[in-house]
């Protein structure tokens, strides 16, 4: 299953998903989407559309059709596994509460 906005070949310009790094040291975060004829113009359009107020220092664009998402119908099961594995979190280890630098 591709990105929810992908329109296949119906539109003259395909849809691109835009990811912006707001400052150095942070990850690129999804900002939205736009239309562009190719990747070169997609980056430029993203610059004009999503960084008009200095919101970013780096841009990724990805064709919406190239994104694979997890199966929405299996949502519950797919993300169920971490439940019950509380031992992955530091808060599980209560006996060491109060010990310095731990």
């Amino acid at each position: 299953m591709t990105s929810p906005g992908d329109s296949g070949a119906r539109e003259t310009w395909p849809l691109w998903e835009v990811f912006i790094r707001s400052s150095r040291g942070l990850s690129h975060v999804h900002a939205g989407s736009l239309h562009a004829p190719d990747e070169t113009m997609a980056v430029r359009n993203a610059r004009d559309l999503y960084t008009r107020r200095s919101e970013g220092v780096s841009i990724w664009v990805v064709p919406a059709s190239a994104i694979t998402t997890s199966d929405p119908d299996a949502k519950g099961e797919f993300f169920e596994s971490p439940q019950g594995k509380e031992y992955r979190h530091a808060t599980y280890y209560t006996k060491s509460d109060g010990v310095p630098h731990l």
């Binding site: 310009w13 736009l34 239309h35 562009a36 430029r44 359009n45 004009d48 559309l49 008009r52």
Partner: peptide
């Protein structure tokens, strides 16, 4: 010619 271009 396209909205993206209005912005540009």
């Amino acid at each position: 010619p396209e909205l993206e271009e209005d912005v540009a």
